[in-house]
């Protein structure tokens, strides 16, 4: 429960309402080693605390990177932080994406909207260990081209010959040249062997359910599909009770969960 002081070291506007911040520890403590998919609790003095997934590179734990969308009082305050400002951070907490290298296995990442942020550490890890997987494919769905995150990196990832990186937008705009439509039809063109595939899906809950069903229709095993649970996290360590979805504490049994273990829970009204 103990917070550590951190200082804002970098800030980059991603879209009109989303920023990426880098935080460095202001004390003498060790670097915050984390697994892709884990989250931190970030506290702004006088405002409050929210869970934020880590979106940085797990091999560079000296700086904690979070991509934050302004959707409320605390996230708004975080988006307004300036370089040099001080915050409190605790963690990392929660489960992680299954990115342990498994030679000969295909990996499919599907991200929707801000859901790319919690997937980015997994992507960094996959790319750093690229030879230890078979195919690596990414499908990223965004509302419009103006909502795309990590633009510079996207260009780099798309130009890599060893990653099949696809982007689609829900709505076309004059500046957009590329795919329009949901993420699921793009799965038609990826080259993966369903029975040999690990799928990692992160986005709004409805989108994850639709993608998981689509993958299962393509014979990807429900035990090989991973999704991210999102609920109201107060403590982050399974005590406060707020994040329960049926038998699961989303903060400690998640955020990353095997789809087969939560399929019956997602989509239940008011569960």
């Amino acid at each position: 429960m103990m917070l550590r002081p951190f200082t804002v070291k970098s800030k980059l506007a991603e879209t009109s309402d989303t920023v990426t911040l880098g935080f460095a520890a202001a004390d003498e403590g060790p670097a915050t080693r984390f697994e892709p998919g884990q989250f931190m609790m970030v506290y702004v003095f006088g405002v409050g605390e929210v869970p934020l997934s880590i979106s940085g590179d797990p091999s560079e734990p000296e700086v904690l990177v979070h991509t934050v969308r302004d959707v409320g009082a605390v996230t708004g305050a975080i988006c307004s932080l300036r370089i040099g400002d001080s915050v409190g951070i605790r963690g990392p907490y929660g489960t992680s994406w299954p990115v342990e290298p498994t030679p000969g296995r295909d990996v499919v990442l599907v991200a929707g909207g801000i859901g790319l942020a919690p997937l980015r550490p997994a992507l960094y890890h996959l790319l750093a260990n690229r030879s230890r997987y078979d195919s690596v494919s990414v499908v990223y769905g965004s509302r419009t081209s103006a909502d795309l995150l990590y633009r510079e990196e996207l260009a780099g990832w798309r130009s890599r010959p060893d990653v099949d990186f696809n982007i689609t937008v829900d709505r076309d705009s004059p500046d957009w040249v590329g795919d329009v439509g949901m993420v699921t039809p793009l799965l038609d063109r990826l080259r993966f062997i369903p029975s040999n595939t690990t799928a990692i899906v992160c986005g709004p809950e409805i989108m994850m359910r639709v993608v998981a069903k689509d993958l299962i229709e393509r014979d990807v095993h429900p035990d090989d599909i991973y999704v991210s649970l999102e609920r109201n996290f107060k403590c982050g360590i399974g005590f406060c009770g707020h994040c329960q979805i049926g038998p699961k504490f989303a903060c400690k049994d998640g955020p990353v969960a095997v789809y087969s273990s939560v399929a019956d829970l997602l989509g239940q009204e008011e569960l």
Partner: peptide
């Protein structure tokens, strides 16, 4: 009470 948090010149200080 779990923590007190001081907002000092040098940044935040957390005290269990």
């Amino acid at each position: 009470t779990l923590l007190t948090i001081e907002h000092a010149e040098t940044g935040l200080r957390f005290c269990q």
